[in-house]
Simulated scan of single mutants.
Amino acid sequence: MFKQVHATESVSADLSISRKDVKSLEKVPDQCIESTITQFSPSIRSGSFADIGPKRYMEDEHIRIDNLSSHLGSFFKFPKPSAFYGVFDGHGGPEASGYIRKHALRLFFEDVNFPQTCEVDDVFLKGVENSLRKSFLLADLALADDCNVDSSTGTTALTAMIFGRILMVANAGDCRAVLCRKGEAIDMSEDHRPIYPSEQRRVEELGGFIDDGYLNGVLSVSRALGDWDMKFPKGSSSPLIAEPEFRQMVLTEDDEFLIIGCDGIWDVITSQHAVNLVRRGLQRHDDPEQCAKDLVTEALRRKTFDNLTVIVICFSAPGNREQPSPRQRRLKCCSLSPEALYSLRSLLDLNANQ
Score class of each variant (00 low, 15 high):
Gly207Asn: 10
Phe209Ile: 07
Ile210Asn: 13
Ile210Val: 15
Asp212Tyr: 10
Leu215Val: 08
Leu215Cys: 06
Leu219Phe: 10
Leu219Ile: 14
Arg223Lys: 15
Arg223Phe: 13
Arg223Pro: 09
Ala224Pro: 07
Leu225Ala: 01
Trp228Asp: 00
Asp229Glu: 13
Met230Pro: 00
Gly235Ser: 07
Gly235Thr: 08
Ser236Leu: 14
Pro239Gly: 12
Ala242Asn: 04
Ala242Met: 04
Pro244Thr: 10
Pro244Ser: 11
Glu245Asn: 11
Arg247Thr: 08
Arg247Ser: 09
Gln248Gly: 03
Gln248Ser: 14
Gln248Ile: 01
Met249Gln: 14
Met249His: 15
Val250Asp: 00
Val250Arg: 09
Val250Met: 14
Leu251Gly: 01
Asp255Thr: 09
Glu256Thr: 10
Glu256Phe: 00
Phe257Gln: 03
Phe257Ala: 02
Phe257Leu: 06
Leu258Lys: 11
Ile259Pro: 02
Gly261Ser: 14
Gly261Ile: 02
Asp263Met: 06
Gly264Asn: 07
Trp266Ser: 04
Trp266Ile: 05
Val268Met: 06
Val268Leu: 09
Val268Asn: 05
Ile269Thr: 07
Ser271Glu: 01
Gln272Asp: 11
Ala274Trp: 03
Leu277Asp: 01
Arg280Cys: 12
Gly281Val: 00
Gln283Lys: 15
Gln283Val: 02
Arg284Thr: 13
Arg284Gly: 00
